[in-house]
């Protein structure tokens, strides 16, 4: 049941447990703990350099945290390889778009779908039944996702030739193709105009309605407030708030962080 402080109640899907990440002498994440509950849309916000993307990178296995643990459905993720984490059910997009530029949109999405496929060289060479089944399912799913994201016309275009907005949508389609339980979006609205942002909001809700949990890094406060069930706020690598949007908006510490008021004054 939704309540004022925690948004949608559900069992924890992802637990970030006391994670610290240091680069040389710089502490990018300082004993961060929060959880993402199944079925919610969680916002992860904070000023520039607060450690949001670092947090994504620790969750998806790009960085090994200095200490702490990340669990998905109770399974430890730290020290697993990146592709294993993806197969366990986390998918992400990138702040700077990172598609496979010389592949078509369809192939980009198919690569995502391949995360759940098992065909390797022998199967592909011998055209075993599993290969054929996976190819068929992968193509069907890829077309469905392109459709879902509103870019069915782009299927046979090279990714690098798509307009900017379509590239962002394609990245989400590719991430969805991996069949994630948790979808992490890193500033998906960057560079969008207000109309496109509205569309994106609706889309994120539709993704949640498909039964997927969404973790959203976003700069645009209005966007975050409008769509999330709960918000975690980072500042200088520390968590300063974890509450429903309304409560976060009223939190003086958050206001101070965003407006740059010194902490003691806040």
């Amino acid at each position: 049941m939704p309540d004022a402080t925690t948004g949608v109640a559900g069992p924890p899907l992802l637990e970030v447990d006391d994670v610290t990440m240091q680069f040389g002498g710089v502490t990018a994440l300082d004993h961060i703990s929060f959880e993402v509950r199944r079925g919610e849309i969680l916002g992860l916000i904070g000023p520039n350099g607060a450690g949001k993307t670092t947090c994504f990178n620790v969750m998806t296995g790009v960085f090994q945290p200095t200490s702490g643990e990340v669990r998905l459905n109770g399974q430890k993720l730290v020290s697993r390889s990146r592709h294993q984490i993806t197969r366990l059910g986390i998918a992400r997009t990138f702040q700077n778009i990172r598609l496979f530029p010389e592949m078509t949109a369809l192939e980009n999405v198919q690569v995502g779908g391949d995360a759940r496929h098992r065909t390797s060289v022998p199967g592909a060479l011998l055209r075993l039944p599993r290969h054929r089944r996976e190819e068929r399912d992968g193509r069907t799913q890829a077309f469905e996702l392109l459709d879902f994201m509103g870019i069915p016309h782009a299927a046979n275009s090279l990714a690098r030739n798509l307009p900017y907005g379509d590239q962002r949508r394609l990245e989400i389609a590719r991430a969805l193709a991996t069949g994630p339980e948790l979808l992490c979006l890193d500033e998906p609205a960057a560079g969008f105009n207000p109309a496109e942002k509205e569309e994106l909001l609706a889309l994120i809700r539709r993704i949640r309605d498909r039964g997927q949990t969404v973790l959203l890094i976003e700069h645009d406060m209005r966007l975050v407030m409008g769509v999330t069930d709960r918000i975690v706020v980072l500042e200088f690598g520390r968590k300063i708030a974890d509450a429903a949007p309304a409560a976060v908006r009223a939190d003086p510490k958050v206001v101070a962080a965003y407006l740059g008021v010194p902490e003691d004054a806040a």
Binding site: T86, R98, L99, F100, D114
Partner: peptide
């Protein structure tokens, strides 16, 4: 597809489960 994805962007390919 995996080969092409690796050629295009190995890190992104890994994160997409390759």
């Amino acid at each position: 597809r995996s080969w092409l994805a690796i050629r295009e962007d190995e890190d992104a390919a890994e994160l997409m489960g390759v």
